[in-house]
Amino acid sequence: MARTRIALLTVLLALAVVPGSASAQDWTRLTPSQQRVLAPLQAEWASLSAADRRQWLAIGDGFEGLTPEERARATERMREWANLSAAERDRARQQYRALRSMPPDQRESLHEQWEAYRKLSPGERQGGSSR
């Protein structure tokens, strides 16, 4: 009897951590606040996978803690990010981890270096120094 109870409790615990169904993430079922934050994605929301929707909802939930400037930037980039393939997103995440693990002095100048890099020709980017 005790074993059965333990088994049932374990199963219930396991089920408790299962994420919600995809239908619960339909655009019309989002709260007004979620719809406002994720508005740039409304057009493609139906075509997003359940995992992507869950991810966006989690990102949207974190919007409260962002500064107005960060919110504006995130809103602007949402569609660009949503339109990337899974492989491209993985590549961006890897590059992000790599660049953020650089020494602080290099990290601080990343934006300037990116601007300098953008001005280079493809040949200069691949080989020669810009300096």
Binding site: R71, R73, R97, Q126
Partner: peptide, 26 residues
Amino acid sequence: QAIDTALLIDDLPIEAYLDPEFRAWL
């Protein structure tokens, strides 16, 4: 999700993180 949020608000554009040459150039 934490990285995705960071990428969305980062001062570098997403394009910078998609360019494999940028890291090598750095």
